[in-house]
Amino acid sequence: MQLAVNILVLAAIYALIACGYVLIYRVSRVLNLAHGELMMLGAYMLVATASAFSMSPVMAVVIAALMSLAVGGMVYLFLMRRMTGEMVLAAVLTTVALGILIRGAVILIWSAQQYHPRAMLGWGNPVITLPGDARISLYAALLIMATVVVYGGLFLFLRFGRWGMRMRAAGQDPLLAAQRGINLHAVFALAWGLSTFTGALAGILIALDSGLDSTMVMIGLKAFPAALVGGLDSLAGALLGALIIAAAEVGVIRFIDPLLADVVPFIVLIAMLVIRPWGLFGTREELDRV
């Protein structure tokens, strides 16, 4: 039972991060390898707002998340916009460079020490005991809820929202979308903003649960196999991929070797690339598009 809860929590983490990869890839065919860093940046925003808004902790969290939304949009408008029309590889390498830049900047601003934003906000983290004697911390439970809400919201938004439809349209055929009067830059910026927002949400909740330092990047990187296993252009796939990766990882830690934890997602990824490179729910044509 505890095992199932652990898997669920880890799956929620990976899923919440992975949807950021999917959003950007789906709309602009760019693999954002700076996603882990952007997510970490979001968590550090909380450190900043936590000291600025120590009166109202909820306010601090909300503002940190909203700032991430803006950061994501700005990353597109000031940087990635210049890479449209360049080769996909150049865009991906740009995100790699951005990641390094953010990593350096974060350490410069906040130093390499560990932070505990929860303590800064004066919140506790009670353990909830579930039926079956499984235990889960409050913020882990919140994380699962956040994942459910975010995915539900994204599904509805992409399905029925006007801008959601536009994001799907731009992802399919950017030229036609532009010719129909859709402002591609706005759509791409929105995708980057939403992606960074969801990533930051994950980062903030993880930081609230278990503290924050620059190793958080690794969690972001490990979530990326989840997106790929499910199919880079499918949100439902990311959900399932996250579950698979989390199950594999928790299983391996429990039954084989805890040291394997950091490689398991990549082993699953390699296996997937051998069997079905376009992922569980992805479209096969994607392989030739990039």
């Binding site: 210049r82 890479m83 360049e86 790699v96 460079a97 830049l101 990593r103 350096g104 350490i107 130093s111």
Partner: peptide, 24 residues
């Protein structure tokens, strides 16, 4: 002195970006 490593990262990222964007 303590932040040499961080400055390194940040500067390296910036240089890479500058080359990718302005001098492919």
């Amino acid at each position: 002195a303590g932040s040499v490593f961080a400055v390194n990262y940040a500067a390296f990222g910036i240089v890479m970006i500058l080359f990718l964007v302005f001098e492919p």
